[in-house]
Amino acid sequence: MKYENADNIFPEKLLIEIRRFMPEGYVYISPKGGRKEWGSVSGQKSELEKRNTEIYEEYHAGKSVDTISEERYLSKSSIYRILKQFEYM
């Protein structure tokens, strides 16, 4: 992110209006279109969704939480949390 001096970019009337709301400090202006969703750029979100779906399917195929926990290197509470997410879908 690049910082620019507002005096060099905005017209004086706009700066006066902005200073009414925020007399000093930094203001972040997000890019047009807003922020991207977490993990959408790196693919991490889709990987976790795939893993969690696999865990859900393994559990309903008869694997125990203990076994899934050991195989996936996750705590039992994490497995229960993942399974609970699917109850509300």
Rank of each mutant, 00 (worst) to 15 (best):
S77L: 07
E12M: 09
E4S: 01
A6C: 08
E4N: 02
Y59F: 15
G62N: 08
E54R: 06
D7C: 07
S69Y: 09
K45R: 15
F86C: 00
V27Y: 06
Y59T: 02
A6S: 09
E57R: 09
V65T: 10
I29S: 00
I16A: 09
E24G: 01
E17D: 08
G33A: 05
L83F: 00
P23C: 05
Q44R: 13
E58N: 10
E71S: 13
I82Y: 04
R35E: 06
K36V: 06
K13Y: 11
Y88Q: 07
H60Q: 06
R81F: 11
I82A: 05
G39C: 03
M89A: 11
N52E: 05
P11E: 14
K32N: 00
R81V: 00
G33T: 05
E47R: 10
L15C: 03
M1S: 13
R72Y: 15
F21S: 10
K84T: 04
W38S: 06
G62L: 08
E17I: 06
Y28R: 04
E4W: 08
S75Y: 10
I82D: 03
M22D: 02
P11G: 04
G39I: 02
G25H: 01
K63P: 00
I55E: 00
K63V: 01
P23G: 02
S42H: 09
N52V: 01
E12R: 14
I9D: 06
E24A: 12
Q44I: 12
G39R: 04
G34D: 02
I79A: 05
I29N: 01
P23I: 08
P23E: 05
K50G: 04
I79G: 03
K76C: 02
V41G: 00
V65S: 06
K2V: 14
G25D: 05
E71Q: 15
V65Q: 12
E24D: 12
Y28F: 08
S40K: 14
E37Q: 12
L74Y: 12
G34E: 01
N5E: 12
F10H: 03
G25Y: 06
Y88H: 07
E54Y: 01
K76Q: 14
M89L: 14
W38M: 09
Y73N: 15
R20G: 07
F21I: 11
E70W: 02
I79V: 14
I18K: 04
G39P: 03
Y80K: 08
E87T: 12
L74Q: 08
Y88V: 10
L83Q: 02
K50L: 11
P31F: 09
S69R: 06
N52Y: 08
Y80A: 02
E58H: 07
E4K: 14
E17S: 05
N8W: 11
K76W: 09
N52H: 14
E70L: 12
K63F: 11
Y80L: 08
K76M: 11
S30V: 10
N52L: 01
D66E: 15
Y88G: 02
Y28N: 05
V27S: 06
A6Q: 04
E58V: 01
E49P: 00
T53K: 14
G25S: 01
Y3C: 03
G62D: 03
M89T: 12
E4I: 15
V65P: 07
R19P: 00
R19N: 07
I79E: 04
P11Y: 09
T67V: 11
K84Q: 03
E17K: 13
Y3W: 12
V27R: 11
L14M: 12
V65R: 09
